[in-house]
Design a protein around this nucleic acid. Structure first.
Lengths: 189, 189
DNA sequence: TTTGACATGTAAGCCGTTACATGATTTA
DNA sequence: TAAATCATGTAACGGCTTACATGTCAAA
């Protein structure tokens, strides 16, 4: 009876709690810092997961009073939670995530647009990808010198390579569009 | 009053209907053929969209009786539907799709795994990416010779470049893991 | 004095999935 | 005779989002 399958968000929370105990509020901050790049979670989502995980006894929360600040509930991973996390981490069979990409939906129906409008879409995607590329390149370089951030760096590197792929694609699209414009205008003459 | 924002799935259906009228059943088949790579939709999803789009008068359905086959409802795009589609297609501001990737969640917590277990994850991702690469490379090449499939090819090319990016990343991870194993064993001596 | 950080949650609702339900016809 | 294709949908539910609700304290 291997653990009931939980949403990935559950394991993301378990993973964070495996590094250090935290309140829901603190988890939300941590998510924005690291995981959000490839697994965004809203505040409500996190609080909801904590309820679920506590019912499963995968985490246990205890109130911690603070001076001059509201009392918070700090959660820590239980051994059952750690076992569930590790089991999931080892599964190489990540259910195939269908990557949804509305840019490609637009591209597919590019026939309905003018060449200029298509270019605008491609350029916008390129600009976005370049920003992402620069952002991730910085992070990857920074983490290079931090041995303990080996795995964090690897996730950023994945994003970097994919941003580069998008840029390469955009460049190819621009070249193709130019070539297309030539053959089309010549066939019109 | 630019159109109320509909889910991307609505526009995907409108896009397909802009190419030819079709029944829900036929749309489901078309989705599996092309769009599913970057915007999968279930049968129920499609039927649901058709209900919504018909209420909005973006499509209109009419029953078509068939010999020896069940009657079907064939939908065609209305001019209002075409306008809504084109407006959406032109928007270069695709709301940022959070690309969710559970592999990266696992990688981020790679510290909890042994080097072998991490390798297994990376290898599995590599195998999957290679299959995807090969599949898409074939499609891109095939569509190369079909001028009318220009945009379909461009979507496949995007997927191809991203599969290559994943492969490149996996290769880097393997190299890093090897280097890491060396420095770690030497520091243990 | 108002804004922002700290802190926790509920409510409503959308998008989408899987499973279920039905029924004729064709093919193996 | 069983399975697949054609054809349309409903039901139930899961995951997640946004907006709402509340309240203290520190800083600008």
């Amino acid at each position: 009876m291997p653990g009931a399958q939980l949403p990935v968000s559950s394991y993301a929370v378990l993973g964070l709690l495996s590094q250090s105990e935290a309140s829901g509020y603190e988890l939300a901050q941590q998510v924005d810092g690291a995981i959000a790049n490839f697994w965004p979670m809203s505040k409500s989502n996190i609080y909801g997961e904590l309820v679920r995980l506590e019912e499963l006894a995968f985490v246990s929360g205890s109130e911690v009073a603070q001076e001059k600040l509201p009392t918070k509930r700090v959660f820590r991973l239980t051994s059952a939670g750690a076992a569930a996390l590790d089991e999931w981490l080892r599964e190489p069979t990540f259910r195939k995530e269908r990557r949804k990409n509305s840019l490609l939906v637009k591209m597919l129906f590019g026939d309905r647009l003018s060449a200029e409008e298509v270019s605008r879409l491609v350029d916008a995607a390129g600009v976005e990808a370049e920003a992402e590329r620069a952002r991730l390149a910085t992070i990857v370089t920074m983490l290079e010198s931090v041995p303990s951030a080996y795995f964090a760096r690897s996730t950023a590197l994945f994003g970097l390579r994919h941003a580069e792929a998008t840029l390469a694609w955009a460049a190819e699209m621009r070249r193709d569009a130019a070539a297309r414009a030539r053959t089309r205008s010549s066939s019109l003459n």
